[in-house]
C-alpha cells in the first residue's frame, strides 16, 4: 500500500510539474537565452523526449536505485538532497526533543490546575501561538532576540557553525518557532484528554486507594492520555515535513523545504520528485509508527 501511494504521488507530482510553464533549459538560461542555446541545452538534458518517456525512464532508473541527476545542478540527486535532508532532520529532531517534554508538562500543568490562574494563563498563551502563523512568530523572534537584544544570530547559516554550541545558537530561533507552532495543539490536546482521564472512574479508584497525586498522574492518568497526544504528534510531524518550508524561508535555513521551493522555480524535475518521495515516505512512516505506538500504549488494543 505504501509503495502504491508513493508511486501515485510521484505520478501526480510529475504531472503537476509538467503543467508548469517553460522548462529547465529556459530557467537555466533565463534572460540571456537564445533559440540556439536553448535547443542545445534541451538536447543535453533530454528535455526533447516526451513527458511519458521521461517519467518511465525516471521510474525504471528509480527501481534500480538511481534517483537520477539534477537537471540544473548537474550532480546526482541523492548526493544533492542528502545533506539537505540531514539539515532538516537535525532541525526537526531538536524541535521534537524540545516539543515532547514541553507539551506534556504544560498539558499536565493546565489539566491539574483546571480553571485556576495557571490554566488560564497558559491556555491563553497557547491559543495565541496556535493562531499566529509561524512566519510571524519567526519575524518577531528575529526582531526581538537577534536585532533588539542581540542574544542570538538571526539566520540559521549552519555552514558557519564552529562547534556544537555554535550550532545550537544558530538553530535556536527556528527551533523555537517550530516548537511554538507545534506545541500549541499538543498542549490543548493533552489537557483535554488528561482532564477526561482524571475524571474517569479508575483514576478515582486510584485516588481512593490513597496513592499520592504524582503517582496517580504518572502511572495511571498519563499513559492513558498519551494516545491522542501521539496522534497529534504524528500530525504535527506531518505538518513539520511540509510546513518547514516557511520556517526555512524566514531563517535562510539550508534544508529540504527551501531546496523544494528552489527546485520548483528551476523546474528541476528529478529533484522535485525525489523530495516529494522523501516527504511522502516520511509522512507514511510517521503514521505507521504512531499507529503502532497507540496500540502498544492502549491496554484495550494490545
Amino acid at each position: 500500500m505504501a509503495l502504491i501511494s508513493l508511486l501515485a504521488v510521484s505520478a501526480i507530482i510529475f504531472w503537476c510539474v509538467e503543467l508548469l510553464p517553460g522548462d529547465a533549459a529556459e530557467r537555466i538560461l533565463g534572460r540571456n537565452a537564445t533559440p540556439e542555446s536553448l535547443a542545445l541545452l534541451r538536447e543535453t538534458l533530454n528535455l526533447h523526449l516526451s513527458a511519458p518517456e521521461r517519467y518511465l525512464t525516471w521510474l525504471s532508473n528509480l527501481l534500480s536505485g538511481d534517483f537520477g541527476t539534477s537537471l540544473v545542478a548537474d550532480r546526482p540527486v541523492l548526493d544533492y538532497i542528502a545533506s539537505r535532508i540531514a539539515n532538516t532532520a537535525l532541525l526537526s529532531g531538536f524541535a521534537l526533543i524540545l516539543y515532547i517534554p514541553i507539551s506534556i508538562a504544560l498539558g499536565v500543568i493546565t489539566a491539574i490546575n483546571r480553571g485556576r490562574m495557571a490554566d488560564h494563563a497558559i491556555s491563553v498563551v497557547v491559543l495565541i501561538f496556535m493562531c499566529l502563523p509561524e512566519f510571524v512568530i519567526g519575524i518577531l523572534l528575529i526582531s526581538i532576540f537577534a536585532i533588539k537584544l542581540a542574544w542570538l544570530p538571526p539566520l540559521a547559516l549552519i555552514g558557519q557553525a564552529n562547534g556544537f554550541g555554535d550550532l545550537l545558537r544558530l538553530i535556536a530561533l527556528p527551533t523555537i518557532t517550530i516548537v511554538a507552532a507545534m506545541s500549541a495543539y499538543a498542549v490543548r490536546m493533552m489537557r483535554e484528554s488528561l482532564i477526561e482521564v482524571l475524571d474517569s472512574s479508575y483514576v478515582l479508584m486510584a485516588r481512593l486507594k490513597g496513592l499520592p497525586t504524582w503517582r496517580v498522574l504518572l502511572f495511571h492518568a498519563l499513559p492513558n492520555a498519551l494516545g491522542p497526544a501521539i496522534n497529534i504528534t504524528a500530525l504535527n510531524v506531518a505538518w513539520m515535513i511540509g510546513g518547514v518550508v516557511v520556517v526555512e524561508a524566514v531563517f535562510e535555513f539550508p534544508g529540504i523545504g527551501r531546496l523544494m521551493v528552489d527546485s520548483i522555480s528551476h523546474k528541476d524535475v528529478p529533484v522535485i520528485l525525489a523530495i516529494s518521495m522523501v516527504m511522502t515516505g516520511a509522512y507514511i512512516a510517521t503514521n505507521l509508527i504512531a499507529d503502532v505506538l497507540v496500540i502498544l500504549l492502549n491496554p484495550k488494543l494490545r
Binding site: 519575524i139 528575529i142 537577534a146 536585532i147 542581540a150 544570530p153 538571526p154 539566520l155 547559516l157 558557519q160 524561508a249 524566514v250 531563517f251 535562510e252
Partner: peptide, 14 residues
C-alpha cells in the same frame, strides 16, 4: 535573497 534576512545578517555580524 530575502532582503530582510540579508539586513538582519549584517546587523548581527553574521
Amino acid at each position: 535573497p530575502e532582503e530582510s534576512a540579508r539586513i538582519a545578517a549584517i546587523e548581527s555580524g553574521q
